[in-house]
Design a protein around this nucleic acid. Structure first.
Length: 479
DNA sequence: TTTTGAGTTGTTCGA
DNA sequence: GTCGAACAACTCAAA
């Protein structure tokens, strides 16, 4: 046989987006199974039509997650390629540049990403294989007996639980067959990290982005045991939640792996913990079936709601200067750490949309920018739920009283003290309503209301009454 | 097709 | 201080 120059075997592209992990990654496994060299790529797309570009906190997270992933790949003889631009131009260019014979990607859940992939599937000269990487159950596969999509959580969860445990997570490969080297952007050049000012100090102190950080977080959470989870997860002053949400948001860990490890440990809180995973999936399938979820109320009659645009009140809420301690503590926790305890999210969100009657989309946008766990589906579905216009929404009269919520879930005031230090010296019985504290108590704590800490920007009872009136005035039953 | 039971997370008021 | 009822009506999901 005549000697012919051997051309390098053409690669397959492993297109990673929100599955920044090597463990339990169906797209990676399929790419490896193809027998071709695997070229992992991440494309930062902030330009596709309708794109929700990552917010500030998410960009910080993404930078460190990509750095961790690149290191994990290097250790396995591979190299992560970074490119920036619209999927519709960057992906075809990568195919042409590398001679790739196929692409393996995760199934996107955001409407704009789905649209981009649909277009690519039509136009690419090679096959685009899409794998379910983000959810326990692909949205299209969970249907009511009538064939429709679920709009109520409990029956949705029942249907998911009937399927039982997902398959065990696949381990990360030891090595990836290297593809020919091509140019990559430098991560630093993407300028995902804040500078001038560098506001990320609290984030660095709170989080370890990346697959290893996710695994360590899960292990620490499960080491503490699931037994008290159902009650402890509601207390913002203690470490009672898993804090895995940002890792899940970027796919550094799979929900299936979380379920498996939690089930292996067992504990009375297991069911509640799995339900939290299913809430994430419920939101994802709501977005899957309602592309307008992030912008328009699911219940159309809410279009008539007399929302108030109130820039000063919105700014006070964003900065944690409303004069309502539990709200301000939550908003400051968010600002400093990129995360807010779930219970406090509900209270702070309810205060914005009910007491202040500011459109839920303003809160959604702020959370999108400041949360390290920002997820399009969860964020939109949760804000709509609080506002009362979402799926399975709270009854209109369910308006959180932030004073009662504080007294109930932060009884000793530890949470408020941590994030609103100017109130730290107030005794617990006054800390959630300093405007009701006797002047002597305020003086003893060194607090001048209106100077050291704001007076409430709204009378809680009046705000509640105004919201109830507005809900009553809504036209009944949508047209 | 009709019926039936149920629906994450709350607050207030009055007995 | 505690407890139960009221707060609307509607939609969903399954039998």
């Amino acid at each position: 046989m005549a000697a012919t120059p051997t051309s390098p075997s053409p690669p397959v592209l492993l297109w990673l987006r929100r599955e920044l992990r090597l463990t339990d990654n169906p797209a990676l496994r399929a790419a490896l199974a193809s027998g071709h060299p695997v070229l992992p790529v991440f494309v930062l797309d902030e330009e596709s039509p309708g794109a929700w570009a990552p917010g500030g906190a998410s960009r910080w997270w993404l930078h460190h997650s990509l750095a961790a992933l690149a290191a994990d790949l290097r250790r396995r003889g591979s190299r992560l390629v970074l490119r920036r631009g619209p999927y519709a131009t960057v992906i075809p260019a990568l195919v042409a540049e590398t001679g790739a014979v196929a692409i393996h990607a995760g199934q996107p859940l955001e409407p704009w990403s789905r649209a981009a992939l649909r277009g690519l599937a039509q136009s690419l000269p090679v096959r685009l294989h899409v794998h379910d990487t983000a959810l326990l159950n692909a949205p299209a596969t969970v249907r009511t007996q009538a064939g429709g999509a679920y709009g109520v959580f409990t029956p949705y969860a029942r249907a998911c639980l009937a399927r039982g445990l997902p398959p065990p997570p696949a381990p990360a490969p030891d090595r990836l067959p290297a593809a020919p080297a091509i140019a990559s952007d430098r991560l630093e050049d993407w300028r995902l990290l804040p500078r001038r000012p560098d506001w990320a100090g609290g984030l660095r102190a709170s989080w370890t982005p990346g697959e290893a950080g996710a695994a360590a977080r899960l292990a620490a959470f499960l080491d503490a045991g699931l037994d008290g989870y159902a009650a402890r997860r509601d207390l913002p002053g203690i470490a009672g939640t898993s804090k895995l949400s940002p890792h899940l948001a970027w796919g550094e860990i799979s929900p299936g792996a979380m379920w498996h490890e939690a089930a292996a440990r067992g504990g009375a809180g297991l069911g509640v913990f799995v339900n939290e995973l299913l809430w994430r999936e419920f939101s994802a399938q709501l977005l899957w079936h309602n592309a307008e979820l992030p912008s328009a109320p699911l219940r159309r009659d809410f279009a008539a709601m007399p929302w108030r645009e109130d820039a000063p009140a919105l700014a006070a809420w964003q900065r944690g200067q409303t004069g309502i301690p539990i709200v301000d503590a939550g908003m400051r926790e968010l600002w400093h750490t990129g995360w807010m305890h779930n219970r406090v999210r509900m209270v702070a969100a309810s205060f914005l949309v009910k007491h202040l009657m500011i459109p839920w989309q303003r809160g959604e946008a702020w959370f999108w920018d400041t949360l390290v766990d920002a997820d399009l589906a969860t964020n939109a579905a949760s804000w709509q739920w609080v506002a009362g216009c979402g799926a399975d929404a709270a009854p209109y009269f369910r308006i959180f009283n932030p004073v009662l919520q504080g007294a109930k879930f932060d009884a000793d005031g530890a949470y408020v003290r941590r994030f609103v230090p100017e109130l730290a010296a107030l005794p617990a019985r006054h800390i959630h309503a300093p405007w009701l504290a006797p002047p002597a108590a305020l003086a003893a704590a060194g607090i001048r209301l209106g100077t050291d800490y704001p007076a409430p920007i709204i009378d809680l009872a009046a705000g509640r009454a105004r919201a109830l009136d507005a809900f009553h005035a809504l036209p009944k039953s949508p047209a």
